[in-house]
Amino acid sequence: MFVLLRQLHSTRKSARVTRPARRLSLAVRHVDAGSCNACEHELGATANLFYDLSCHGITITASPRHADVLLITGAITRRMVTPLLSAYRAMPEPRLVAALGNCAMGLGVLGDDRDLAGPLEQLLPVDIRIPGCPPTPDQIIQALVSSNLAGQAITSA
């Protein structure tokens, strides 16, 4: 295991992650509402030691009850509408909704209308938009950090 720890140490050094001067807190709950899994891979990658999401004070939380942000990926499928709305309703206020990736933003969605529920905007109030197919880990972190610093989380829905 020491070999691994040494390797991680040197990789981390080479990654040159800059620690932010201001650090706030933001708990994020992710919901895949019909994604192709690329957004999930990039969101997962934000936790690796090249990006280190947690050093910005942002955590991915297991339950929507502990979340400030509902981060939604994918074209919204009909089958995911009920679980998605349940997760939103379980969140404490004030709460934010983030659309991660072009599909969630309703851009270039592919699929059949009979299986898709339409744009996320029509289901929930979207506060943060992170375009990309998929957005890179850097872009995801940047969007979450800037929305956090802009104080969007203060207002109640």
């Binding site: 019909g34 499928t77 592919l110």
Partner: peptide, 9 residues
Amino acid sequence: YNHRGLERA
């Protein structure tokens, strides 16, 4: 849950 009807589309 992620069935988007891609084949049908």
